[in-house]
């Protein structure tokens, strides 16, 4: 079968899609990021101030955001 899309597929043979983080490293990375976020959240809880909000809470939320995505992939719910 020849179709325009098949030609496009053949033309893209040199660039298969690879995720930034492979399946093997999803669990350690997700765990590491979540651990960091819980640690920072704990430190923030000890001293809640506006300065700590940007210094601790922002990195903690970022680590939780990405950590949660990698963790859910690692346990088999591929989002």
């Amino acid at each position: 079968m020849s179709s325009p899309l098949l030609d496009v597929w053949e033309a893209a043979s040199a660039s298969p899609f690879h995720p930034t983080v492979g399946k093997q490293s999803q669990l350690p990375l997700g765990f590491f990021l979540l651990a960091i976020s819980f640690l920072l959240a704990g430190v923030f809880g000890l001293n809640r101030s506006f300065r700590n909000l940007s210094l601790l809470a922002v990195p903690a939320s970022l680590a939780f955001g990405f950590g949660a995505v990698y963790m859910i992939c690692a346990v088999g719910v591929y989002v």
């Binding site: 496009v8 976020s37 923030f44 909000l53 809470a57 939320s61 970022l62 955001g65 949660a68 995505v69």
Partner: peptide, 28 residues
């Protein structure tokens, strides 16, 4: 075939990040 801009791919972690930040800000 489909278009999938990199900004769209960051939606999931960013939504969670914004949500968490809102909780932190609320606690403060």
């Amino acid at each position: 075939t489909y278009d999938y801009p990199w900004t769209a791919s960051f939606r999931k972690p960013i939504v969670i990040t914004v949500g968490m930040l809102a909780i932190f800000a609320a606690t403060w």
